[in-house]
């Protein structure tokens, strides 16, 4: 019998890829999370995680950092995206590029440069770890807010703004009753692009706070580098769960507007 390539067979490489690099690593993490150093099944990691105030504190601190950073990025990014999307600005493409361009520079290098700049203007991480970290986080994640918001707002129908004024809205009401509700899908996906990566961010807090702030990503890294594979794996699972939950919560909105899509770190 001659072999005939069918559409079904085209997906074999992808399935192999997914099994090798997604499914098996996750299974490994689950395996390590629920075994001890001798390979026996145990709940030790779970118990030690939920009884360690230190680790719980890191989790709560990371959540707070994520929430604040998401809000800061949205507050800064939303007006920029709105201005860019309104046709009045002819240079908008250039400005989008200016915001996106730093992303082409190596991330670790960029963060080191940020640290140097901050030190130079007097906000050294050693003295002001929180401020430095927040500046660094916002700087890095604002492009991820602008892009999904920009693409949502480009699709907004200008005549709807006219329709809203026609029906009696003043300028503020046009925004609160028409523009903002319609840009919510963009806001949600922008928030997703910022919230979860902030939690697991490792390089930024490490570099900019000079090791003074430990976020969830940092503590997972510390665990692995200290050969505590079991507890670190369990934290990784917690991380995965949080990501899953946020995805579930925001699914309804993003279905309508599957946008954004850039690499995450």
């Amino acid at each position: 019998m001659r072999f005939r390539l069918q559409r079904k067979q085209l997906c074999i490489p992808y399935v192999l890829f997914l099994i090798l690099f997604v499914i098996i690593p996750i299974l490994f993490i689950v395996y390590y999370a629920f075994t001890d150093s001798n390979g026996y099944f145990t709940f030790d990691s779970l118990i030690s995680f939920f009884t360690s105030t230190n680790k719980l504190n890191v989790l709560i601190q990371s959540l707070l950092f994520s929430v604040i950073n998401t809000i800061v990025c949205l507050v800064i990014g939303y007006p920029i995206a709105y201005l860019l999307a309104s046709s009045k600005w002819k240079a908008s493409y250039v400005i989008v590029m200016l915001f996106v361009m730093p992303m082409w520079i190596n991330f670790v290098l960029r963060t080191a440069a940020t640290r140097d700049v901050l030190t130079w203007i007097g906000i050294a991480g050693g003295n002001h770890p929180y401020i430095a970290t927040f500046i660094g986080l916002a700087y890095n994640y604002i492009p991820f807010v602008i892009l999904p918001l920009y693409s949502t707002m480009l699709k907004l129908d200008k005549t709807q703004i006219e329709a809203a004024t026609d029906l009696g809205c003043n300028r503020l009401q046009v925004f609160t009753k028409s523009i903002f509700p319609q840009s919510i899908p963009g806001v949600i996906s922008a928030a997703q692009m910022v919230f979860m990566p902030t939690m697991s961010s490792y390089v930024i807090p490490e570099t900019l706070s000079e090791g003074k702030i430990v976020l969830f990503g940092n503590s997972i890294y510390i665990g692995f580098s200290n050969n505590q594979w079991n507890s670190a794996s369990f934290m990784a699972i917690i991380m995965l769960l949080i990501v899953g939950i946020t995805m579930l919560v925001t699914r309804n909105y993003t279905e309508k507007d599957a946008k954004g899509g850039s690499s995450r770190w």
Binding site: A163, L167, G168
Partner: peptide, 21 residues
């Protein structure tokens, strides 16, 4: 006078309905 102060309403060519409502 801005549109919101006129007792005049418009039906738009492409309707301009609010998709979120």
């Amino acid at each position: 006078l801005p549109p919101n102060k006129r007792p005049i309403n418009m039906v738009f060519q492409r309707y301009a309905l609010f998709p979120h409502l």
